[in-house]
Write a protein that binds this DNA or RNA. Structure first.
Lengths: 219, 219
DNA sequence: CATTTATTCAAACGACTGTTTGAAACAGCC
DNA sequence: GGCTGTTTCAAACAGTCGTTTGAATAAATG
């Protein structure tokens, strides 16, 4: 393993650059220059720039999603017949993706990439992301329903939406916080960040509903 | 006013396209085709693509920010010597930008653009946005401090960060909610959406702080 | 009116884009 | 050795990009 695989070199460089500047703003020539490989190698190994992006995302996101589902299953097992704890569901969703930042030597670029991808308006990419996240979305929306019985569906959808926004923004723009407020995002471990995010979103989920549901069927 | 101003035609087309596909993904030729003007007109009136983007953003954001500050001032006046109400601060921040969507004939494109801009990693654009938002940031972070006395600064910064993420995501990806959950974002007026967002973020701001502040000076 | 100023237009600029090609270098195996 | 399939490489492809140019037109001013 002295000489790193070309495929890996491309993935690493692409991951870093996509996260830094975004998908459109990075050219294949930027990538192959950073990876010190030939231009054609990209198409030989990945077929196209779009497919390369898919590979970059998938490489990191797949294990994260597996861990998410595993943590959720564990939370379910621990709850037993009792009601699922909202905080544990949120932690199962946040911890794997935030931990991937610290653990992997990717230097924090990966989480920024994931956060960015959520907000990128690339039709192809969005279809791909939906397919990658399908299981996670299904399982977790069920878990939220279990953890918050009585909350009507519309309200649940919106609050999940808000929660996703807070998560994505935190992943994507951790440095913005530093520049705006002076608070250093990386000063404390990602556990502390996750803890703060869990508290914030859990409280949001549990907020008293004041909006009168005009036409609502479910409870 | 039978023949619309060329400058306005460009701004309108650019706003719609930028919001739909993003800054990098839209070419000047896409814009001038939609606006039915000559290519050189863009550089004649705006100087560059980057400056055009600034103009597009500024045209809508400036009145929004003025209204934000006005609403905040009114909330302060109404509070008198009493403590500023958190919900009113949040409403002052949300209502103008969400209402701009419904009121303006831009067809909802503007809010998506603003939401997108927050997440775009364009150095030039970020500097511009910081300068445009400077007053709003200063005034509102002061207001949050007044509405939530006792919350330490670090926690306040993080929660503002989460709140901004929820807001931006809602502005930018209202249609995502529909595709994922089936809940139609536009079904109810923007007032209802703002109301939900206020409830969610207000609860998040008020959440009990469990994270022990390791090294903290302020209260 | 003429003359200046502001605006529009078609055409081209050089640089950069993702992708393809076909030959060279390399590996492993008989 | 020769032969097979895989991987690398330089070069070129056909476009698109933001921007510039200089002449043609419209509007405004004297």
């Amino acid at each position: 393993m002295a000489k790193t695989d070309t495929k890996t070199k491309i993935l690493d460089a692409a991951e870093r650059l996509f996260a830094q500047k975004g998908f459109d703003a990075v050219s294949l020539r930027n990538i192959i220059e950073a990876a010190k490989v030939n231009l054609a190698a990209v198409h030989y190994h990945f077929g196209s720039k779009q497919t390369l992006l898919h590979a970059v995302v998938s490489r990191r996101l797949r294990p994260v999603n597996e861990e998410r589902l595993a943590m959720l299953a564990e939370a379910r097992a621990k709850a037993g017949k009792r009601k699922l704890k909202l905080e544990m569901v949120l932690e199962s969703l946040f911890v794997p993706v935030f931990r991937a930042q610290a653990s992997h030597k990717s230097g924090g670029s990966f989480t920024r990439l994931i956060g960015r991808v959520v907000f990128d308006r690339n039709t192809e990419l969005q279809k791909f992301m939906v397919s990658e996240l399908a299981q996670v979305i299904i399982q977790f929306s069920r878990a939220f329903d279990e953890a918050l019985p009585g909350l009507n569906k519309t309200e649940m959808d919106w609050r999940s939406h808000f929660m996703a926004g807070a998560m994505a923004h935190t992943l994507c723009n951790a440095d913005l916080l530093a520049s705006f407020t002076g608070t250093d995002a990386g000063a404390e471990g990602c556990e502390a960040t996750v803890q703060r995010l869990v508290e914030f979103t859990a409280a949001g989920f549990r907020a008293k509903v004041s909006t009168p549901p005009r036409k609502q069927k479910s409870s």
